[in-house]
Computed example of a mutant assay.
Amino acid sequence: MPHADTLTVVHHDDTRTRFTDVRYQLHRDGIRIWSDEGEHHVTDVLMTHAYRQREATN
């Protein structure tokens, strides 16, 4: 499962939601995101931007 330091979700209405230090999984019906705040499932996704600044650790 990919890990991102910063993950930005761009919605169909051009609004953006930003998450930090997350794991995520893209699906046909959206994106599932796991963060310190819990699990999020976003279905209104136009595109995503994921950035990784540091080395991944297990």
Rank of each mutant, 00 (worst) to 15 (best):
Thr20Gly: 03
Thr48His: 12
Glu55Tyr: 15
Asp21Ala: 08
His11Ile: 01
Arg23Ala: 05
Arg52Trp: 09
Asp5Pro: 03
Asp21Thr: 01
Tyr51Ser: 08
Met1Thr: 06
Asn58Asp: 15
Thr8Asn: 04
Thr8His: 04
Leu7Asn: 01
Gln25Tyr: 08
Leu7Cys: 04
Ser35Gln: 04
Gln53Arg: 13
Thr43Met: 15
Leu46Lys: 14
Ala56Asn: 12
Val45Arg: 11
Thr20Cys: 04
Gly38Cys: 04
Thr17Trp: 05
Tyr51Leu: 12
Gln25Cys: 05
Ala4Gln: 05
Glu39Ser: 05
Asp14Gln: 14
Trp34Ser: 01
Met47Glu: 11
Gln25Val: 03
Arg16Ile: 03
Val22Ile: 07
Thr8Pro: 00
Thr6Gln: 12
Gly38Glu: 02
His41Ile: 11
Arg52Ile: 07
Ile33Glu: 02
Asn58Ala: 15
Asp14Thr: 06
His40Thr: 02
Leu26Ile: 14
Thr43Lys: 12
Ser35Asp: 06
Ile31Thr: 07
Leu46Asp: 09
Val22His: 02
Pro2His: 07
Leu7Val: 02
Phe19Val: 01
Arg23Ser: 06
Asp44Cys: 10
Asp14Asn: 15
Val9Asn: 03
Glu37Ile: 01
Arg16Thr: 13
Thr20Glu: 11
Trp34Thr: 00
Asp44Thr: 03
Leu7Pro: 00
His11Glu: 05
Ala50Val: 00
Asp5Ile: 04
Gln53Glu: 06
Trp34His: 00
Thr6Pro: 00
Arg52Cys: 10
His40Met: 06
Tyr24Cys: 02
Asp21Gln: 13
Gly38Val: 02
Leu46Val: 00
Glu39His: 04
Tyr51Glu: 11
Thr17Cys: 02
Asp44Pro: 09
His27Asp: 11
Tyr51Pro: 00
Val9Lys: 05
Arg23Asn: 08
Thr6Leu: 13
Val45Glu: 12
Thr6Glu: 09
Asp5Tyr: 11
Met1Lys: 04
Arg52Met: 12
Arg54Asp: 12
Met47Asp: 10
Arg52Gln: 15
His49Lys: 10
His27Cys: 09
Arg54Tyr: 15
Thr57Phe: 15
Ile31Arg: 04
Val45Phe: 14
Gln53Lys: 12
Ala50Trp: 02
Asp14Pro: 00
Ala4His: 02
Arg28Trp: 05
Val10Glu: 05
Thr43Phe: 09
Asp5Gln: 07
His40Pro: 03
Met1Val: 09
Val42Pro: 06
Ile31Lys: 06
Val22Tyr: 03
His3Glu: 14
Leu26Pro: 00
